[in-house]
């Protein structure tokens, strides 16, 4: 059984769901998983790495250095004789993976939506041209390094590793994170949420995003997204932008309010589980990818939908 090293991000003593999904991807290909964690609380969080046979905690400087940590993860990959490396396609995972790939002199694959065994090695499927095409890719040798798109793979339902060994980060840090300004609120990130409610120019002005926020709040596990048009108008922050020049999301449910569905927006959300579109223009391209559409005035429909979702949630 080939071994896959999975870099696990953690917060509050638990491995993040996105990293659990990366373990799930490795496990689905029949790999033996070794979880690697960095930072304060790593040894506690390691126990929650469901599906990993063992865990290795990286120890060293209290400040994070992406280059030093990438070098340390590379050492672990080599000493474990792993055939694969996975991380979530989060900021951290996408930043570390290519560095590790360069150390191993291989070509990495970002944002993978499938991970399969191929003999001793692995293959991945990933989008090209923002999802207009899907490429199946493998390696001609060496470790397959990849990141897994969030909300695509299922975490393993099982125990985590029972202990955590240590590996020292020994490479000198070239770049160092010196401070982190935490987010003002504990809002769900748009590419992590299982429900995304996005608004576009059809909302007419920034203040009307309240309708979208209320609907997201009614779902409870939802994040607010935005089209490029409204981010360019400074109605919403870039962190909420869904699309080719924003974030790619694949929630279970995506609700597009007042978004016409420009090609670059569709690129960012077309792999969502279920797509609902609310738009006054029955010819809007968003309806071509939507599973369910309502044609009409968002200012009437969205508040009614919010109340209806609240009523459903109150019953369950």
């Amino acid at each position: 059984m080939s071994k896959v090293i999975v870099y696990c991000e953690h917060t509050g003593g638990n491995v993040r769901r996105a990293s659990l999904e990366a373990i799930g991807a490795a496990a689905s290909a029949g790999a033996e998983v070794v979880a690697v964690l960095w930072g304060e609380g790593a040894s506690v969080a390691a126990a929650s790495a469901a599906g990993a046979a063992k865990a290795i905690c990286l120890t060293g400087d209290a400040s994070f250095s992406p280059d030093a940590v990438a070098a340390a993860v590379t050492e672990v990959i080599q000493s474990e004789d792993a055939k694969g490396f996975l991380a979530a396609a989060s900021y951290r995972g996408k930043d570390l993976c290519p560095r590790i790939a360069a150390h191993l002199d291989v070509s990495p694959f970002a944002d993978c939506i499938e991970f399969m065994a191929a003999g001793e090695s692995f293959q991945v499927k990933r989008p090209w041209l923002a999802g207009k095409a899907l490429a199946t890719l493998g390696t001609t040798g060496g470790v397959l390094c990849a990141t897994t798109r969030l909300n695509v793979f299922e975490p393993v339902d099982g125990p985590g590793p029972s202990d955590c060994s240590e590996h020292a980060v020994s490479a000198p840090a070239k770049a160092t994170v010196t401070s982190t300004e935490a987010k003002a609120d504990a809002k769900l990130d748009v590419n992590e949420a299982s429900v995304v409610v996005s608004g576009g120019r059809g909302l007419q002005e920034a203040a009307n995003f309240k309708l979208v926020e209320d609907l997201a709040a009614a779902f409870g596990n939802a994040a607010v997204g935005a089209s490029r048009a409204v981010v360019d108008l400074d109605w919403r922050p870039h962190g909420e932008q869904v699309g080719q020049t924003g974030k790619t999301v694949a929630p279970q449910l995506y609700v597009a309010v007042g978004i016409s569905g420009a090609i670059q927006h569709l690129a960012g959300m077309r792999t969502s589980g279920v797509i609902v579109a609310i738009n006054k223009d029955a010819e809007a391209p968003i309806f071509k990818v939507a599973d369910y559409g309502i044609v009409g005035d968002a200012f009437e429909i969205v508040p009614a939908l919010t109340e209806a979702v609240k009523a459903v949630k109150a019953q369950s």
């Binding site: 207009k132 095409a133 890719l137 493998g138 792999t271 599973d291 309502i294 429909i301």
Partner: peptide
């Protein structure tokens, strides 16, 4: 170093439907 095995178009999303018009839907 990487090997392209296949490039294909993504499977089409299944046909959706308009459930109705306005808040009544």
């Amino acid at each position: 170093q990487s090997d392209v095995i296949e490039v294909a178009l993504p499977p089409a999303r299944k046909e959706g439907r308009i459930v109705g018009e306005g808040a009544a839907a």
